[in-house]
Design a protein around this nucleic acid. Structure first.
Lengths: 258, 258
DNA sequence: TCAAATTGTCCAGTATACAGGACAGTCGTC
DNA sequence: GACGACTGTCCTGTATACTGGACAATTTGA
């Protein structure tokens, strides 16, 4: 979908770029890159003029949206970006309620709980609260994970047709961390099952010792707007799993638009 | 401003503004405003042309940095802003460590714990973890509070001279929620005391039933880079307070640059 | 030790993004 | 049901922000 234009656009039609777009490219690159980068390298990566990159990055740094490490000049996201981001949680009622619900759920069940959404076609953990097991099963908040690796992903794709799904899933996303490959037809089947069941359970996808139990949060039009899920050890009894599922479904219906 | 303009230039210097600046203005206004605003009102508030505001807001919305409520068209911060902001916590080592420390401290003491910084001259709660008292004493993360109302504020101003302090504190910030007025000389005295003591305790400032115990986090040059603090009920015994202070000072020295 | 590469800053010309206004549609309110 | 206020979209001319290149200072590394 490329809201952000790929900067690697063939050679030199040399369009002059709006600073808005340049800013969005910078932020997006920084987010994807995952670590600090120096201005020169950034300009090169974005195929942007050095001078423009300098002025923009300096402007954003002055505003506090970015920070430049005084040691080596590498660029990071800044305090102000964090503050602005917090407003999202405060203001967005679903996100806010979901956050509280996840915290409650983790406390009640003692299991790691997560709130997830599709973020421009990428699976994203919006909020997470670790459980209190000795071995903490947890993933980092804000990470973007291939959709097919997760139970939540199967629910979030409910209502999409085959073409949309195929467009959304990159080829390499079907390969699990241990090298196994998910068959696209089985995957689409699983999505359909998840939609009908109103929940989804996957075992041993990301690693061999965990299972993931996810429930949909419905939007006003009956679409799956987000999910809430539990990350569990794989060796629970059927009764335990069933009880957790009931609790989880309670939470999800509380969060869904009626 | 506009000291430079010839006096007869009177109305509407109508500078053309860079979109970077417009974007920063929009974000900052939205942050300060605290709730959604419609595009028209935003343009008016910023004294910006409507058309430019429309295109910019739409660009930012498409990128996911902002969101427009489908009901009434009001603008809010978006998911992507939240994701970008999370990177700050992940990448910035002080913020990251402080967050963990605050969580640990709240768990160990059972009291509400906070991590605070000056953010461009404003006192800001960067992270907070509520304690487990029946009456939860807690303030919202990301809020900006007048510096003189807090114990942390007194520590954060350590090392500033009188002129800097006076420049930083607005007249109305000296008035407490209950109408009492803090004397500027006493305030500067308190800052000096806090600096020498290496911690700060304030009682009954923001409300009558809480006290605030803060400890400094020192940067590499010995400056107070941030604080970590406990929000406590006002009627603790001296022993309890002393024990909490030791625990807090442990945390703060762990976070300080050696 | 001397190139080669990189960093941060500055400048001038021009492609173009912004300001301003027009327009049709939609609310409210009197 | 006529009026004012607002919303969202589109168009045009021009003020200017962006680009490209040049520069000195610094770092790399051979």
């Amino acid at each position: 979908m490329s809201l952000i234009l790929p900067a690697t656009d063939a050679e030199a039609p040399q369009r002059r770029e709006r600073s808005v777009d340049r800013i969005l490219q910078i932020l997006e690159f920084l987010h994807g890159h995952g670590e600090g980068i120096r201005i020169g390298a950034l300009a090169k990566a974005l195929n942007a003029p050095r001078s423009s990159t300098y002025t923009l990055v300096n402007d954003l740094t002055q505003a506090g949206l970015l920070e430049i490490s005084p040691d080596d000049g590498r660029i990071f996201f800044g305090k102000r970006m964090y503050l602005y981001g917090l407003n999202y949680i405060r203001e967005n009622s679903l996100a806010k309620r979901a956050r509280m619900e996840v915290d409650r759920l983790a406390k009640e069940t003692g299991e790691t709980s997560e709130f997830c959404m599709l973020q421009s076609g990428r699976y994203t953990i919006m909020h997470m609260r670790p459980g209190n097991r000795p071995f903490r099963i947890s993933s980092a908040v804000g990470l973007q994970i291939p959709i097919p690796w997760t139970a939540s992903g199967r629910l979030l794709l409910a209502g999409h047709d085959r073409a949309q799904i195929e467009a959304l899933i990159a080829e390499e996303d079907l390969v699990l961390p241990d090298g196994r490959r998910i068959d696209i037809d089985e995957f689409i089947d699983a999505i359909d099952h998840a939609r009908r069941d109103g929940f989804c359970l996957t075992k041993g996808l990301v690693d061999a010792v965990t299972q993931c139990l996810a429930a949909p949060i419905y939007g006003a039009e009956g679409n799956v707007e987000a999910t809430i899920c539990l990350v569990l050890p794989i060796d629970l009894s059927d009764e335990q799993t069933a009880a957790l599922r009931e609790t989880l479904l309670d939470s999800s219906s509380r969060l869904s638009a009626r």
